[in-house]
Each structure stands twice: as C-alpha cells, then as structure tokens.
C-alpha cells in the first residue's frame, strides 16, 4: 500500500472571538493519497476553508491558530515547520486557488509576471525563461493568443479567464497537491463546466492530488473520488463519493443530497421531491459542546445525541459516519 501524501491527524483549529475561543475545526482526521481527488462539502462556516488555509499555513494572523493535531505532508509535520520552509512548500508543492477570481489577482501587475514570479521564486528560472513558460501555461489553461495575453492586466480579462490564470499560477510548479476553494462559485454555469473540464484534464496530465472545497454536490459527483462532509467544524461523514451518494450514513449528508436535483440519475427516472435541511448552522459559541451539533436540525434525534458527541462508525466499504444512528440509516 502506498503512503498517503497528506495525513491530517486530530486537527483542531481555534478562532479567537470577542468572548473566548471557538474550535472551528474540532478533531479532524483524514488522509489524501497521491493523485487522489478529495472533496470537502458543507454549508458556509463549517470550517472547509479554514482547513485549507491551515494546510497552507495561512490562517488569519492573530485570529486563528492550530491548537493541536498534526498535518503530515510527505513525512513532514507542517504544524511545526518554520515559516521559511512553509514558503518553500507554498505555491510549489501545495498550491491553492481561491473563490474570487475577480479580486484574487493583483490588479496592477501583468498576468504574465504574476505567473512568472512563482517560477522564478521556486524553480530559479531566469526572467526570460519564466516569461516564456508563463505563456506556455496560459496556453495550457486554454487562453487564446497566450503570447500576446501574457502582458495583459487582470482588468483586461473576464472572470473565467482570470480563474484560468489562477489555475496556471497554482499549477506552474507542478504541485503535489492543489487546493481549490470553491473555484467556480463566482462564475456562471457554462464557465463552471469549462473550469471543471480543465481541472480534470490537468489532473490527468500531471497526477496532482486535488482537494476541492465546495457546497455544490453536483461538482463533487463530477470531480471527486472521495468526499468529506463537514458540519459545524466536525467531520460528519467520509467515504467514496458514489457510495455516499448511493447510501449516505449521516442525516446531514442525506439532507444535502436530497437538496440537489437528480445527481447521477437519468432524466427519465422518476425523481424524489426536493427537500431542504431545516434550521441553521449553530453559532460558533456552541461549537465545542459534547453533543451532536446537528441534533437540533435532525429528525432522528434521540437522547444520546444531546448527551455525547457521536463516535466515528466505520463500514466495510470505507464509509465512516459520525452519527449515533449510522447503522440504522
């Protein structure tokens, strides 16, 4: 069996609030294999982006911190790595693309320079060589006329093109892991499909592992092999995508899936009615409690749900669900 590329062990991230601290990530463990595509799913504020920023070592300074746990990348614990070492890894071995292509690129620097500086920093390329490769990368992310567009500024490009540039920057050094934080949320639907196609093709070419953060179950079904469902800073369920969609073992996952019209079903099939998950995510102040945090919104709620945090229950097919009633579902 191959070693996992990234191993997250009992990660706990605390966020400083006006009145004390809240665990925005509470005891999260997972593994990412080389070449694998893993998706994080969950509502806004459940800690998806915090996990990504923690892996990058970019938690908001003075506000968020890793309280305990390990992030083992290629045998090296990133939580104890020096800032200089983290800089060597960022953009080189682990890189990230963000949700907002409109504001994620520097408005006063040419896109070519924004790509080329990564190559100069991490691979020691000369100005000329880096610039040439920037044009090649623009070509690789399918921007027409790459030779002339390298000297464009971001304001001369559309949202979809800017996200392509972000992807070119992220993949410039052929990273081992690409973290995509809601890469298509700000784009319109046809462009979303193009970006997913691009990411899939580039992954097939480079063998990069992808961690994709999204709240779009359709995107998960399309992009990922395994998924982690997050709720209120905790893992709700983890497992292979098709099996979870086929038979979710956590009421929250079930709720998310039934929100989406016809994932993986044919148009002719009779479809179940769309439902919603009632209620809202608990506030940050309730995050650390020793109970199931989903209980207030759950129709299967019983006494033990409110008394203790549910244990992880594994199933033979690789599915793990943190629910007291997992077997019964």
């Amino acid at each position: 069996m191959t070693e996992p590329l990234l191993k997250v062990e009992n990660l706990r991230i605390e966020l400083k609030l006006r009145d004390g601290v809240a665990p925005v990530i509470d005891d999260l463990s997972f593994e990412l294999m080389p070449g694998e595509s893993l998706s994080f799913v969950g509502e806004s504020g459940c800690g998806k982006s915090m996990t990504a920023l923690a892996i990058m070592g970019l938690l908001p300074e003075g506000i968020g911190r890793i309280a305990s746990g390990k992030l083992i990348f290629d045998g090296e614990d990133l939580t104890t790595a020096s800032e200089a070492r983290l800089r060597q890894i960022r953009g080189n071995e682990i890189s990230m693309i963000f949700q907002e292509p409109m504001t994620s690129l520097n408005p006063v620097i040419t896109v070519g320079e924004q790509i080329a500086e990564v190559l100069r920093t991490h691979q020691g390329l000369s100005r000329k060589a880096a610039w040439d490769q920037a044009a090649e990368l623009l070509d690789a992310v399918r921007i027409p006329n790459p030779r002339s567009r390298v000297s464009d500024y971001p304001f001369q490009m559309s949202g979809g093109q800017r996200q392509r540039v972000m992807i070119a920057i992220a993949l410039a050094c052929k990273p081992k892991i690409l973290i995509a934080d809601e890469p298509t949320t700000a784009l319109d639907v046809t462009v979303q499909a193009q970006i997913f196609d691009l990411l899939r093709d580039l992954r097939a070419q480079t063998g990069t592992s992808i961690i994709m953060i999204t709240h779009d179950m359709g995107a998960v079904a399309e992009m990922a092999e395994r998924m982690i469902v997050m709720y209120a800073g905790r893992k709700a369920e983890i497992g292979p995508v098709d099996q979870i969609i086929d038979h979710a073992r956590h009421p929250y996952t079930q709720g998310l899936i039934s929100c989406v019209p016809h994932i993986m079903s044919d148009l002719t099939e009779t479809r179940e009615e769309l439902t919603e998950v009632p209620g809202i995510v608990p506030s940050l102040r309730e995050f650390g409690r020793d109970q199931c945090l989903f209980a207030s919104r759950c129709k299967y709620r019983s006494g033990e749900c409110l008394q203790h945090r549910p244990p992880a229950k594994g199933f033979g097919n690789g599915q793990i669900s943190d629910c007291w009633h997992a077997e019964a579902l």
Binding site: M56, L58, G91, N92, E100, S104, P107, E117
Partner: peptide, 26 residues
C-alpha cells in the same frame, strides 16, 4: 487584507515581495 495579497502569500513569495511588490504598488 486583500485577496490578491493572500494569493501572493499562497504563492510562497518572500515577505518582502508580498509587501513591497504586491501590496505597496496598490
């Protein structure tokens, strides 16, 4: 605090490049 400065940090640029090249110019 802007998104593009976060991008610059995520690229692994040195502190000097982040502040004087990416932030100051703006």
């Amino acid at each position: 605090g802007s998104d593009y400065v976060r991008t610059a940090k995520a690229k692994g640029l040195s502190q000097r490049d982040v502040v004087y090249k990416h932030a100051l110019k703006n």
